[in-house]
Nucleic acid binder design. Structure first.
Lengths: 242, 242
DNA sequence: TCGGGAAATTATGCATTCAAAATGCCGGCT
DNA sequence: AGCCGGCATTTTGAATGCATAATTTCCCGA
């Protein structure tokens, strides 16, 4: 689901900054932009989406903006209140737990499928990213680490060669990404995650589907717990702060 | 995903037939109606969605109809061709296979979770539906059989108590439902499905999560194969017929 | 001073209008 | 005779307008 065509934020920027009249996909552009704003927290969970205001901000009219709201609502990032506008959906902790449960089931499947189908070349590519990721880990650079991490999971998803699976997964991943923005890993958790990734890579090389599946499932479960802990720790702070 | 609020077709009818001015959500109504039309085949896969025509048909204007298109596109039932309108998405056989693979992973999870949490009362309810289903089976009444079947899976999903899982599953189920409309089971397949359901019920009663999970997974896999066979058998006929 | 209610304001939902792009058609050109 | 290009028509995409529902404010009474 999410954005099957995958117009990235880059294009959004391109349109917003340069020639303002590239007719065709104001809706898509608005949706992607809103998505980014929600994920990075510019639009806080629970905050109201003022269509008038956002329209001015993006220099478009209400129609495509409203369509964008609908799309994001279908994605679960936004809640529509009939005749009362739209708000950024709050992600309750139990919801995040639910999502991670579902995602780990999907990761398990992707592991099974990937083990059957992955090519040596794909493994080699993953190996490169993996090594890069380790480097960032040793340097303690979290953001690029995450990026590599995500790329690896994307590669595995791609190797599974099941677009429906990939889209379903991405839909959920998009929704929890905002939680991850908030979440910070402890050193212990981080080390554990890296260790797990080593095992995952090994299972991938061995084409051991069952093992890979179990590893990925556990990996996601741990990630879920990390995020959960962070959220629990962060929640009271936020309540106090604003 | 899908329709989290779940306004059903009933409401659509209500609005369409009685007081025509119930201001509020023509978009939702239009989306649900289109969904039904697509699922039941009134709008054939690949056919163009003529917005003007559909607007007249439903007595609404283009704005909510276009919004409905966007929502259905996010659900995957409709494909938007920029500046060229929207068409009902075709479901390719490999896509159906993909969906069933994902659904079986989700069913497996729902089985695991349900086994942990299901109450005696819920089991009793399922037992009733199960018995009813068997009756329809012996009578050879396919449609009501399917309905019971679906209800059982819904009950298990409900028992799993994971809304995200349920919504994700429903999103996919909604998309493959059209395939099932076409599909017809062989007697052997039907008997096998019934036998599997017996086992599923037993595992549920025993609260055997691992077993239930495996059974559901296999069950869905078989269902997927059934649908696949039907589609393969139906495809050439359709090509010849029109 | 506080609470209730009505009017004004605001914002939402849908319709309509306006503009641009695509499709189809006709004529000219090779 | 067939193909390419330009013009008209159709259709889509976005903006604006209008009616209604929600919210806020303000006034009056207790």
């Amino acid at each position: 689901m999410a954005r099957p065509d995958g117009l990235g934020a880059a294009f959004v920027e391109e349109l917003a900054t340069t020639s303002p009249f590239k007719r065709g996909n104001f809706t898509q552009v608005a949706a992607d932009r809103l998505r980014d704003m929600i994920v990075e927290g510019t639009l806080a969970p629970g905050s109201k989406l003022q269509e008038r205001e956002l329209c001015q901000q993006m220099g478009i009219s209400r129609t495509p903006m409203r369509e964008a709201f609908k799309v994001l609502a279908a994605d679960g990032l936004v809640v529509l209140h009939p005749s009362r506008g739209a708000t950024v959906s709050r992600l309750r902790i139990d919801e995040v737990e639910e999502m991670f449960a579902v995602m780990s089931a999907l990761e398990a499947l992707s592991g099974e499928l990937a083990a059957e189908r992955i090519t040596d070349e794909e493994i080699a590519e993953i190996r490169v990213i993996h090594a890069q990721m380790l480097l960032y880990y040793t340097r303690g650079e979290l953001a690029p680490y995450f990026k590599c991490n995500q790329q690896i999971h994307e590669k595995i998803l791609a190797a599974a060669d099941n677009l429906t699976l990939a889209n379903t997964y991405r839909g959920l991943a998009g929704r929890v990404r905002r939680a991850r923005y908030i979440a910070n890993m402890s050193q212990a958790r981080w080390a554990q995650a890296v260790a797990e990734h080593e095992e995952i890579l090994a299972a991938l090389v061995a084409r051991d589907g069952a093992r890979l599946s179990a590893l990925l499932k556990r990996h996601l479960k741990n990630k879920g717990e990390t995020v959960r802990e962070s959220l629990l720790a962060e929640l009271p702070r936020r309540a106090a702060g604003g």
